[in-house]
Deep mutational scan, measured.
Amino acid sequence: HNGKLCKLKGIAPLQLGKCNITGWLLGNPECDSLLPARSWSYIVETPNSENGACYPGDLIDYEELREQLSSVSSLERFEIFPKESSWPNHTFNGVTVSCSHRGKSSFYRNLLWLTKKGDSYPKLTNSYVNNKGKEVLVLWGVHHPSSSDEQQSLYSNGNAYVSVASSNYNRRFTPEIAARPKVRDQHGRMNYYWTLLEPGDTIIFEATGNLIAPWYAFALSRGFESGIITSNASMHECNTKCQTPQGAINSNLPFQNIHPVTIGECPKYVRSTKLRMVTGLRNIPSIQYRGLFGAIAGFIEGGWTGMIDGWYGYHHQNEQGSGYAADQKSTQNAINGITNKVNSVIEKMNTQFTAVGKEFNNLEKRMENLNKKVDDGFLDIWTYNAELLVLLENERTLDFHDLNVKNLYEKVKSQLKNNAKEIGNGCFEFYHKCDNECMESVRNGTYDYPKYSEESKLNREKIDGVKLESMGVYQILAIYSTVASSLVLLVSLGAISFWMCSNGSLQCRICI
């Protein structure tokens, strides 16, 4: 991952900044910058967002509201009850120091605090018919004063009620008058409520006091790749198909172990950190130390980045220098085999997901714990399936590479015959000098055995068991695999060879 928040398929997220979902939807004055928000790819909250409900109280069923919003990608904020005409018999300019803005008392931008007009609070009834052709999110509140005197001074009615009804919602609220500790300079409380109004449905408000009335509502448009994440990451000019709280993932790998919460087309989250597919040879310690064997393909974004291909070729060293050249036929066979294998694994496992966190309130801790156990169970199954699949494929890959290298080895052996000696570690020792032209003939299969047989015969008789390297004779190393990324691999195959001279070296080696 890149540690950044990015656009998702070209669409920017909605960053709530210092506000949370509650503050944004109710219209906390400190969240005025969010009022123009219309569309987004996903919503970003920060872990310690401080601006929620400015007048103390709870947004009821907040967790369910977050779940609903996680599939919303755009909205239209509109005046559901026009301020100047909807409440002619009531005062609608209630403000509070708890919702101060720029040093002055204020109130929510989407709600109206209705109080008595003169000395009376006549029963009010108002309704709205949803003609938007889509779901409408309606929010309101109920004020709970701290004393009967406060109730009387604001609403005149000691036994007030609030009723809200639609086809799918029907509740009646009565204020709970009680002494409470002071929070944000208030002994009173406000509880906030919401409902989704279906197209064509009607919502009716009736009250004799204590109503925090809707002013603006939201017509919602769903987008199934949307979601809500909690993150401290910063926004950058970048684009992605998959976003996590820790950063964007741009990967076609089937798995990731970065974060379980994802938005967009994302690899499946697994616990494993070692889900690797081999593309090189079986481990040979001396070669492995030099980083030549054991190439791997990573299938977990965050564990290993991208696929690494092994390729086969020849390396030689003689009086004229040293050089490398790919054996294109065996390399292409290996590439085709690995590509098919990788595609097979991805096809089997690479279903892209959006995974969002589930919200539970403080009273639902047991449910949250149960949900976590269920999620953990599914996660263990996914991890096991992934590891088992790759384990089985790896064994076949190792066998496949062994065969490829063996074929190259036999190709060289059949040409050199007794003009060189096998020394048991995949290397041959020449009994004759071999210049670049000679080396090329070994690589392309045109090695002239009779041409060098007499010199080889004489050297075999002279050496008589002495280690060949100390006599200045020449080696050919018969097994060799270097490691390159897919891009470098293609470039390498396009070149005939490249040279690395070893000044004054008397050794001649050709490596497979």
Results as ranks from 00 to 15, higher is better:
E437C: 07
T383E: 13
A326N: 02
K451V: 11
K365P: 02
N350F: 05
N257H: 05
Y269P: 04
G321C: 09
W304L: 07
A325E: 00
N333W: 00
T397L: 07
A420I: 01
K372M: 07
F299H: 06
K413T: 07
T305P: 15
W304P: 04
E455V: 10
L275N: 05
A420G: 12
K348C: 06
A326P: 04
K433L: 13
K341Y: 00
N436W: 07
L416G: 07
S231K: 06
A478I: 12
N444V: 07
G377P: 03
C508W: 10
Q317W: 09
Q328T: 02
G303T: 03
T339E: 10
L391F: 04
V466L: 15
K413R: 15
Q243M: 10
L275W: 02
E469P: 01
F430H: 13
F299A: 10
N250I: 08
S272D: 14
R276S: 12
C501D: 00
L389Q: 05
D464A: 08
E393K: 08
I287V: 14
F428R: 14
V345I: 12
N369T: 15
R460Y: 12
D376N: 14
R276H: 10
Y324P: 01
F400L: 13
E469K: 12
V356T: 08
N425K: 09
L253N: 02
L379Q: 14
K417W: 03
V491R: 01
L506F: 05
W382T: 10
N369M: 12
N444K: 12
L370W: 11
I510M: 12
I338A: 03
Q328S: 02
E393A: 05
L253H: 12
E429I: 11
E393F: 05
N419V: 09
M349P: 01
K462T: 13
N503A: 01
E237T: 13
L493R: 02
V483R: 02
M367R: 05
K268S: 11
K268P: 00
N436T: 15
G291W: 09
P254D: 03
A334I: 02
G264D: 06
R396C: 08
V278M: 02
Q328C: 01
I296S: 02
